[in-house]
């Protein structure tokens, strides 16, 4: 049994991202890796990116659907961090050659008006602290071959975070029932998947509350101005060059991008 070297494992995953070269899951070498180990690797990975001058625009939630949690045999979602370099402008182009094997999911993004600090945070308190919600498309791109990973692998890999497109219409959530927001994800005009907000741990605001409570364990909080992805409402759909991807969210508007070489 070998001890995990957080720094070198983080560098290994960072290289996979920058060189666009998928790697075998790290738990193959470290079968005893714990969730705590995995988040420590993620912290080192985040530190590397910050050291290069990148800025965190907000944390994000992953594995928020019942189906994914069952598939991974976990009871709570995971989190990662979205950086400024990951942002693709609304209506803009996603460059395929910068990525490995990207997939897209439709989500509701929260922008906070006030800090939120766990533990004991609830969905209702999240809504009260939310300045507005925005439609978003998250592009996930696991650094692992064929998206084959265990829970510690994906946590260490910054929850597969890769790119994000944020819509340009903001809405006060006060007048919305976010768990009932109908969402369609289309590629080249054809609906590929759909769902309602409740697909995200029962209610997207509950997902943000869970995130605040998880971050509290390491003494962190969600901050005013953070743009937070609450988790996928739809399944993840593979992308190809030439795709025009769009999501429609009832009451929130639309968001789209195209995939280029």
């Amino acid at each position: 049994m070998s001890t995990v070297n957080y720094q070198s494992t983080a560098e290994f995953l960072h290289r996979a991202e920058t060189e666009k070269k998928d790697v075998f899951r790290i738990t193959a070498d470290y079968p005893d890796m714990t969730i705590d180990d995995a988040y420590k690797i993620q912290e080192k990975l985040v530190a590397i990116k910050l050291g290069q001058g990148h800025r965190v625009i907000g944390p994000k939630m992953g594995l928020t659907s019942q189906a994914k949690m069952k598939q991974m045999n976990v009871e709570e979602p995971i989190y990662g961090y979205i950086f400024d370099y990951m942002v693709v402008p609304e209506g803009g182009a996603l460059s395929m050659q910068e990525l490995i094997h990207p997939k897209v999911e439709a989500e509701i993004a929260f922008v906070l008006g006030k800090d939120i600090e766990g533990p004991g945070m609830t969905g209702a308190q999240v809504l009260a602290a939310t300045e507005y919600v925005v439609p978003a498309l998250e592009i996930i791109d696991s650094r692992y071959e064929n998206f084959k990973f265990t829970l510690p692998d994906v946590i260490a890999d910054n929850a597969s975070s890769s790119r994000v497109v944020i819509g340009n219409r903001v809405t006060d959530p006060a007048g919305l029932e976010l768990d009932l927001v109908g969402v369609t994800l289309s590629i080249n005009g054809e609906i590929k998947d759909f769902g309602a907000g409740a697909a995200v741990v029962g209610h997207p605001a509950n997902s943000i509350a869970m995130l605040a409570n998880m971050l509290a364990r390491k003494g962190e909080k969600l901050k005013a101005g953070d743009v937070i992805l609450s988790g996928a409402v739809t399944g993840a759909v593979m992308l190809s060059v030439g795709d025009t991807v769009s999501a429609k969210l009832d009451g929130l508007g639309e968001v789209s991008f195209k995939v280029i070489e």
């Binding site: 019942q66 768990d179 009932l180 927001v181 109908g182 969402v183 369609t184 609906i191 759909f194 769902g195 309602a196 907000g197 409740a198 697909a199 029962g202 409402v233 429609k248 969210l249 009832d250 009451g251």
Partner: peptide, 27 residues
């Protein structure tokens, strides 16, 4: 109303079974 975007949550014994949207029916 945009019936295509109407969201729906289906529960069995209080547990979410699945979610859907109007567009699931032929668009």
């Amino acid at each position: 109303l945009d019936l295509a975007q109407v969201g729906m949550v289906l529960y069995k014994n209080g547990e979410i079974m699945n979610t859907g949207v109007g567009a699931a029916a032929l668009g």
